[in-house]
Structure formats: C-alpha cells, structure tokens
C-alpha cells in the first residue's frame, strides 16, 4: 500500500461519504412527501417535481450566477407543481395517485423540454463546507466536504418533527390527515390545509432536485434521476410516517448506494450488479426483520388511501 492509497479503509469512508453525498435528495423528497401524506393525500408525482426542480435550479443558477437563487427557483417550481396537484385533487373523486403519476410525465416532459440547452453549460454549483480540516488524509477531507443543504435537511427532519408534534398547526395537519370528519367538526379548513401541505411537499422535492443538479453529481442531464423521486416516496412508508425515521432511512439508503462502487474500488470486482442493488436489498431486509404481522398501514394517516 503506497502513501496515497488507504486501501480497505476507503470502504467505511465511502459509505460515510456516500451517505452524506447521496442521501440529501432522498431526505428532502421523503420529508416533503411525509408532510403531504400527513394531510391525508399522496403525491406520487414527486419524481417529476424532482426533475423539474433539478432543471429549473440549474437553469436559474446558470443564468443568474447564483446557485442559491437556483435552489429557490427549484423550490418555487416544485411549489407550483404542488399547487396544481393540491387544487386538482380538491375536486371531489379525483384520484390523487393517478394525478401524481400524470404529473411525473408532465414534470419530466417540461424538464426535458426546457432543459435541452442546459445540458452542456456549466452552472455555478452550491458550495460545500469543509469539515475535514482536522485531518491530513486527503480522502477524509474529501469525504468530509459536506454540502450545506445536507445540514438543512437534518435540521428539517427535526423541525418537522417538532412542527407535527408540538405545534397547533402540526396538530391541525395531523387531524386533517387522520380524520376529515373530526377536522371539519373542529372547524379546520381541510382543503386549504391539504393544498398547503402538498405545496410544501413540492417545495422540498424541488429543492431535492436542485441538489442533484447543483451539488452532487452536480450537473443537469436527462439521466440525472435514477428514480430517486419514486424511491423517496416509498421511503416514507418505510419510515412509518415519522420524519426522524425518514432521515435515517435516507442516510441508510445513501450509504448503501455507495457500497457498490466502493467494493469495486477495494478490489471486490465481481457481482457488481448485486452489490449495486445493496440499498434495495438492505431496505427490504430491514422491513422484513422489523415488521410483524401488524397491518402494513398501521401507522398511516387515516385518510391516506394509496389504492382506489
């Protein structure tokens, strides 16, 4: 082993670095979806919102020179899509799942359409914070370059926890999600709450998309998302509708995603398709191990209807 290589030590380092680098979009999208679902609606369309946010964020960062303006634009694009979803689903008998899937098509279409001229240019990226100053090992320093949005994501998970469980608005949101009748009896504006919750979800999903295009991997392309938006929605179920769990699930998913390339890096060169599937296998294994015969939707908000 020569001086610049740290051999097998890269494995834990890659998983840690991967957890930090890869997880951020999952954190934002899953917590966004969690807020929406807590209101009793499901927005399956966040994959489209994510792509739209990634494109809009990159475009605005490129045109304005400010990546943070890009993040804002991504959030606003997501909010607009959330508003569309929220309004349409307020029409009686409209199926929220179906609208969500349609919005994947529309969002992806718009992102691809307007994103064509953005594939080649290089937009200013989000800065990262170097936390590895204490180490002289370049690999450690690199793994400790953390994007600010990652910290925002962690704070967000706790803030949403507090919001849901300790504030009056949080109670209102949960009530609307658990029982429409109870919410109406209490005089809560059910539709307004749901629309706002969907907009909030869209806002966060848009930001999650901007992380992909502006931080890691850090450029806009049509192949940018490998289903992160869909997977993040599924992680909400995995997290049993708890924001801290969603944070943990996202970190786990990101870390496991780094396993495949990292193993090839240390010389485990076979079976890479299976190692690359580690996040999915691990998540499934944890679900099988941690659940019991309890109903699969035991912790779900009462008004949430995935099927129909």
């Amino acid at each position: 082993m020569d001086v610049t290589s740290i051999g097998w030590l890269t494995l834990p380092l890659a998983i840690l670095g991967g957890a930090i680098r890869v997880s951020t979009p999952f954190i934002f999208v899953s917590i966004g979806e969690l807020i929406t679902e807590k209101s009793g609606r499901i927005n399956l369309g966040l994959e489209g919102t994510l792509m739209l946010g990634a494109m809009a964020g990159y475009g605005v960062s490129y045109l304005s020179g400010s990546p943070w303006l890009g993040v804002l634009a991504a959030g606003l694009a997501g909010t607009a899509f959330g508003l569309v979803h929220g309004l349409l689903c307020s029409v009686k008998r409209v199926n929220d799942t179906a609208i969500g899937i349609s919005l994947i098509v529309l969002g992806t279409g718009l992102a691809f359409f307007f994103g064509k001229p953005l594939i080649e240019p290089k937009a200013p990226a989000l800065p990262s914070i170097s936390l590895g100053f204490w180490s002289s090992v370049p690999q450690v320093r690199a793994a400790s370059d953390v994007n600010a949005l990652f910290f925002v994501g962690i704070l967000l998970a706790f803030a949403v926890y507090v919001f849901l469980n300790r504030t009056g608005w949080g109670l209102m949101l949960r009530t609307v999600g658990d029982s429409e009748d109870a919410a109406r009896a209490l005089g809560f504006p059910v539709l307004r709450v749901r629309i706002l919750a969907t907009m909030a979800g869209g806002f966060l999903a848009g930001i999650g998309g901007s992380f992909l295009s502006l931080s890691y991997p850090g450029s806009w392309s049509e192949g940018l998302s490998s289903g992160q938006g869909i997977m993040a929605v599924a992680l909400v179920i995995f997290a049993r509708w708890r924001s801290i769990n969603a944070l943990g699930a996202s970190l786990l998913f990101g870390g496991a995603g780094a396993l495949g390339p990292a193993l090839q890096g240390v010389g485990v060169t076979g079976y890479y398709y299976l190692f690359n599937a580690a996040p999915y296998i691990l998540t499934l294994a944890i679900m099988v191990a941690s659940t019991s015969r309890a109903a699969p939707f035991a912790d779900a908000p009462g008004e949430l209807k995935l099927h129909r």
Partner: peptide, 26 residues
C-alpha cells in the same frame, strides 16, 4: 489502471461515486 463498472450507460450518481472511490484509492 483501476476500472469500476457502473453497470449501465447513464447513471450520473453512481458515476460520481465511482470517481470518488477511484480518487480515494489513489
């Protein structure tokens, strides 16, 4: 020369991870 196969033609996140791993390996 160390090679990492990502497994598909377009996978930006994994390509970035693979690059980081290779740099970490020296």
């Amino acid at each position: 020369v160390q090679v990492i196969f990502t497994g598909d033609w377009v996978l930006p996140v994994r390509e970035a991870e693979a690059t980081n791993t290779l740099v970490d390996q020296g």
